[in-house]
Design a protein around this nucleic acid. Structure first.
Lengths: 211, 211, 211, 211
DNA sequence: AATGAATGAGAGTTCATTCAT
DNA sequence: TATGAATGAACTCTCATTCAT
């Protein structure tokens, strides 16, 4: 953790552009995570990043470059993510467990939630990134899901059903509902994560287990 | 025929405070619907409402009063809404049809989406309203759902299941997924509304019909 | 003369937009008169005009609008000016006297000098105005001169010569030299106005009087 | 063949201070030639000079030192210039020809015009240089002119006249008018150089030739 | 009730200059 | 000698808000 020089010790810290960029994005993420684009000032980002306002401009030409870089970074992380469905050969119950574990690990992380909220709120400020995000991520998710699920069906572990036939990503809908809910309730959601997850698990089991 | 005022200088109109307030909120709704709080200026609201910037201050003391009034008004409308579950005695298939019809009428409307986006974006600026919204609406939804669904179970039309036991609002998750998706894709969603709706219908049927 | 509220009496002065614009341009003229466009700040103009920086923006959308308005105003004044050659029937000596009087009244005025310097220095910041200025004013000057001088030649008061044949505006060259000189020497020109004028007079006399 | 550095990252060159200074001034001349002091940034000068912004500070303590050095260098060049009047023994016609040739070679050159514009624009930023320039150059010009012209008068080639008696530099006024005009018209002057020059020649001839 | 003129505070951005290397 | 990183001060411009009418 870098030393917080509050008020005192105005020593300059010289970092490589790469390291600074990283720190600035980290700071930006925190600032943007609970406010809108316009509500976050360069000053605030700078302060949190531990340098001067002007210092930021040595690394990012404009405010919106920070925004884009931030979205892109997160987007790329998600994109590089392997997908949530386990492709090993598991029992249905294990399959669902692993799937949900991964799913909620992502959907319940503050980082993901912040970025997702930001993207929803400012979708027209960063059309290309959002486009990319939506096209690539969602499509990839869909394709991977479909192929994995077919594999499981083939093995007889999963029963073909409405869910597997048309649009398997629908299977994550409850997690999304949970995420939407926690975006709104700022930390005190009206339903417990445990309950949602458990219900989610049972739903999937009911929909997927062979009769 | 009223006099044509060219050059956008419409003769001063003297309205009652009530009427003006309504007009201002209407204008604000339009402006806020596609931009965030800070991105909308008093000037813009004023212009759309057809009076001067200063004129607005005769009706609202501060900008955030407009914002709050706006959210409250919309929130109240939603609150007054009867809920999506039909409480008449219907067959399961009709029950689901009516439910989905109402659900998607709401989730696919530009109005709902705008307000939802706004609330997400500014959740920390209007904590109380959001709190209210989340608590009351969601809770009410949940309670009404639960009681209606119990009624149907009692009638033997719906089978008690994971969905009905714990948290019936989960049943709307696919519609929320659709809404999230259309908020992101700016008009060109990757899945068709029809498909989602149909899958949704089949899912509900499978989960609710008595064996 | 408006009261200088230095430091004290921060009472707002409410003026009509027209009156304010005039005052702002007056202030701008003073500020721009000895500095370049970039060297003059809105703050400085505002302070001299007796209102706040933001106040200026109620009347001029951008800094360069002030600049253009300023140039245009002066330009228009010059353009509306009747020309320097007297078209009454005078003796050669009176003709030259009146001409020089008018010429130096213009070329020796601080206002003209400032604007002229500004135009020379920033000619590419206000291409159209400069273009207009050069085209219209110079051309007009030339045409008026030519017709007046022909009239005098016709009357036999002026002898046709190199000067009158091709390009009479050359006749003002000494005044221009004087003006250039005083732009550079900031108030302490190395030659006296009287000397230049007297030499100018004799030159014209020698070149124009009938042999 | 020196190594091609693509991406504009020319391997660090270590030069002697003298050589670098020269290069920096050369760069500054180009940058300042079409923009005012404030409009030219250290960055731009640095880039043109082929080193980094900070690198410049190894050679000049402050921006205005560059400016002064630049003006001084140019000024010195002009000062070292022999003056425009030929001191050989020529016929009047040849005398005028040579004089005008030299005069217009200077007044019609982009270099002179740039520097002249700069001096006009920033006359208060570089008072001493301008003072020097005005005093020394103009005075020298005047003195040299006077002595040369006296010589010609003495030889009987030139007739004593208004022009020769008081202030011979007035003889260059038409060239100055031409220069002013071309500074304003950005490349499309309303009178042709040839015409001005020819008229100038005839004027001088008429004013100087013995009767 | 309504407005045009005015402002203070603050936004993003640029730039001459300094520092550590 | 040279540079990339850093900064303070200044810039233009915007905006919520107030005031006089």
């Amino acid at each position: 953790m870098q030393p917080k020089n509050k008020d005192a010790s105005p020593k300059r810290r010289y970092l490589s552009s790469e390291a600074r960029k990283e720190e600035i994005l980290e700071a930006a993420l925190i600032e943007f995570s609970d406010r809108t684009y316009n509500a976050v000032s360069m000053e605030q980002i700078a302060e949190r990043a531990g340098l001067s306002k002007a210092g930021i401009y040595a690394h990012f030409k404009r405010k919106d470059e920070i925004f884009h870089a931030l979205l892109e970074r997160t987007t790329r992380q998600l994109y590089d993510f392997e997908g949530w469905l386990p492709d090993e050969d598991l029992s249905l119950s294990d399959f669902i467990d692993v799937y949900l574990e991964r799913l909620y690990a992502t959907f319940d992380s503050p980082g993901t939630i912040s970025i997702y909220r930001l993207i929803l709120a400012e979708s027209d400020r960063a059309t290309e990134v959002v486009q990319f995000w939506h096209d690539k991520i969602v499509r990839q998710l869909q394709e991977r899901s479909q192929s994995v699920i077919q594999h499981y069906i083939h093995r007889g572990v999963v029963r073909p059903s409405v869910l597997t036939d048309h649009f398997f990503p629908l299977a994550l809908a409850p997690a999304l509902l949970w995420m939407n809910s926690s975006m709104l309730s700022q930390g005190t959601p009206s339903i417990s994560l445990k309950d949602v997850k458990e219900t989610h698990r049972q739903l999937l089991f009911e929909l997927l287990h062979p009769r």
